[in-house]
Amino acid sequence: MDSDEVVAALGGPRAGNSQVAADGGHWMRYQDIGVTGIYGPGMLLVGVAIDAMEGPLVRLGQVELIARVPSQARAEIEDLARQEGAAVRVNWSGDPEIAAWGVSMGTALEYGLTAEGYPEPKDRVITSALFVSAELAEAPYEAGPVMHWCDVREREKSSGSWPVKTNQERSHWDWSPQKAVGPLRFGMTPQQVADALGGEVPAGRQGHYPYWWWRSGAAGQWTLTDDRFEKTGVSAHYSYPEGHPVLGAVTVHGRTGPQITYAGIPLIGATPSRLDAAMLQHIENHDLGLHFTPSGSPVPAGLRIDVNATRAGDAAISEVTFVSADWEL
């Protein structure tokens, strides 16, 4: 199908957003139905991504694929694959991928609504899925059209297990708001960051060329944006106030990062709902102004952090990004 035929099949034009790459790759997110169409050259449909929260329910045989508890979906998928003689492997996110069916599973954090109608993160993840054509099925996330939509080459790869350190196993860091996180001071160069972490070499680096569709080997200067330090359990994020990278924010990983507290509240590796409840109670007890982070978590007004959730198997646990004074949240 071409893009016009997809629109007709969906009942006419729909609200959404899209991007087009220089090589003809294109994707279109049909936002109101939670579906993304991924197109190759000639605007021919080669992939369909279904959102965990907003997408339609999709069934493969008798197996429901979308908005499921991941371990339950995995068990049913593997059982169906055995019955049909299909091989199941683990994709980059640690989820089942079946080339014979052109299916690559994923997950996303589940959200609900508060009594006041605000979105709030839940304490678990639920399944999403990518469906691709036969020519992309052997390596969906290595195919150009899919990479234009979701480039995972520089992301942390999962083996399919998500071990979580206990609070006793974690180191404990101090935090000086808008100044420093443990040994990392905002304004450090990437080399100073690595030195402060005992010379640890980044396990992964992310960046970009001047234009998003450029790849390695293209003209233009590659710009470093993030370093991931797996041993320490943090990621460093860089800004360029004077044309060279300096530390502007630090994300402490939920599963493996050091513990940091605020007003006696452990921020890292916590159950999201309990962390939100503790923050709201602290705000109420001390008559502090209420602010919601970009991800929807409540924090005291003026506290420049972003509380996020990361996957721990079927569950979600908290991780936090601490930012400098001039970092945009």
Rank of each mutant, 00 (worst) to 15 (best):
G207S: 07
A75Q: 06
S104Y: 09
P96G: 03
R74K: 09
R14P: 01
K231N: 11
R29K: 10
A218L: 02
E138L: 14
R228T: 14
S133R: 14
W101Q: 11
M105Q: 00
F186G: 04
P272I: 00
M188I: 06
P210L: 03
A325S: 14
D51M: 06
M105K: 01
S235R: 13
T189D: 13
I305L: 00
G254Q: 02
G117W: 06
D227K: 04
M279N: 06
Q221A: 13
Y238T: 01
R205Q: 15
P202L: 02
T261S: 14
V299Q: 02
A49R: 14
W101L: 14
V35D: 02
G289E: 05
L80G: 10
Y30K: 03
Q19E: 15
I77A: 07
A9M: 05
Y39W: 08
A270D: 11
D326S: 13
P41E: 13
Q178E: 13
G289T: 06
V193L: 04
A134M: 10
G34P: 01
K122D: 09
I265L: 08
E138D: 15
A270T: 10
G254M: 09
A129H: 07
T223V: 09
V181S: 01
S71H: 11
F292N: 00
P13F: 03
G187A: 01
Y238F: 13
K122E: 12
R124S: 05
G24L: 07
L224K: 07
R185W: 05
P13E: 07
R153T: 14
R82Y: 05
G112W: 05
G102R: 03
L136K: 05
V46P: 02
A75T: 06
I98S: 06
G106C: 08
G42I: 07
W214N: 15
L109N: 11
P300M: 01
H237M: 15
D23M: 05
A8D: 10
V58A: 04
P70W: 09
Y141L: 06
G217W: 10
M53I: 12
V307S: 06
S239Q: 15
S273K: 09
S176E: 15
T107R: 13
I126F: 00
G313Q: 06
G55F: 00
W222N: 08
D23Y: 03
G42W: 06
G112Q: 06
A219S: 14
P13D: 03
L113E: 12
E84K: 15
L290D: 05
A8L: 09
M28G: 00
W101F: 08
I50N: 00
S297R: 10
P13I: 06
G12A: 07
P163S: 01
G269V: 07
L247K: 07
A49M: 12
I265P: 05
A81V: 09
M105S: 04
R153K: 12
P145K: 04
D276M: 14
I283F: 02
G198Q: 05
D226E: 15
A52I: 04
S161A: 13
G187E: 02
A73D: 11
L290H: 08
L224D: 01
K122T: 11
N167L: 14
Q192R: 03
A236G: 10
E284V: 12
T256L: 08
V132T: 04
Y111M: 08
N285Q: 15
Q19D: 14
A129M: 13
L247Y: 02
I126M: 09
E135Q: 14
S295G: 10
Q19F: 09
W327E: 04
L184S: 00
P140G: 04
W173E: 08
T36S: 13
E120D: 07
D174G: 15
I98H: 09
Y30W: 12
